[in-house]
């Protein structure tokens, strides 16, 4: 059973809720190794998307929703996360194309396109202690699940779990990209805020898919 426009819209709503709930946590993570604005930035962005969901024309596809998120994040978030997440959603939207329903392989493709977009813009490699360290295991897990024939919800669940593990795994790393890199060795021992927000967003996607699947 594929994920449709309802899932996409619900995912955005759930994302906004989850980011708002974790706003302070993300600020705190970013304060420790960055400049303390990541939670505020992401919250500003997702709160700005919410009212726009109501204006989506009838017949919109999941790709349209991803595009709406992309342009809104780009024009409201700022900082590093704005363009990077904006690119992720934009490339995801392109990968989603005009499909009205997304199956497991489609989801895996979208995630991979999103991750590749972030890499192209931000030039981070795995292990640099960035959101890429959540996205890369997520993309790999999704691809594996999809290849094994899993449905969209199961693909997202695997991606979310991998992203969560990836976010945790950023803790011992020394940052080599983003603001945390200026700290050098002192960046070790802290979780990367962007990896954490990535895990939260993917978990929201999986949860909403699970609910849609009526599990």
């Amino acid at each position: 059973m594929g994920l449709d426009i309802t899932w996409a819209v619900d995912w955005v709503r759930r994302s906004a809720d989850v980011i708002a709930e974790h706003r302070v946590e993300l600020i705190t993570l970013d304060r420790e190794i960055g400049d303390g604005d990541h939670g505020e930035n992401m919250d500003r962005g997702f709160q700005a998307v919410l009212p726009k969901l109501d204006d989506l024309p009838a017949g919109s596809t999941p790709g349209d929703v991803l595009k709406l998120v992309a342009t809104t994040l780009i024009s409201t978030v700022g900082g590093a996360a704005g363009p990077l997440y904006g690119t992720a959603y934009l490339k995801g939207a392109v990968a989603a194309g005009g499909a009205v329903s997304l199956d497991g392989p489609a989801i895996a493709t979208i995630l991979e396109a999103a991750r590749d977009g972030v890499v192209t813009r931000g030039k981070a490699e795995p292990g640099d202690k960035t959101m890429i360290d959540a996205w890369t295991p997520a993309v790999d897990a999704a691809a594996q699940q999809a290849a094994a024939g899993a449905g969209a919800a199961a693909v997202l669940d695997a991606a979310a779990a991998a992203a969560e593990a990836g976010a945790v795994a950023t803790e011992p790393l020394v940052a080599r990209k983003g603001r945390a890199s200026y700290l050098g060795e002192r960046s070790a021992g802290h979780r990367d805020p962007g990896a954490q927000s990535s895990a939260l967003l993917l978990r929201a996607a999986a949860d909403v898919a699970q609910a849609a699947a009526g599990v």
Partner: peptide, 11 residues
């Protein structure tokens, strides 16, 4: 001017 300590968006 962006938000405090946050670079402005492209617009």
């Amino acid at each position: 001017p962006g938000a405090v300590f946050t670079s402005p968006t492209p617009d």
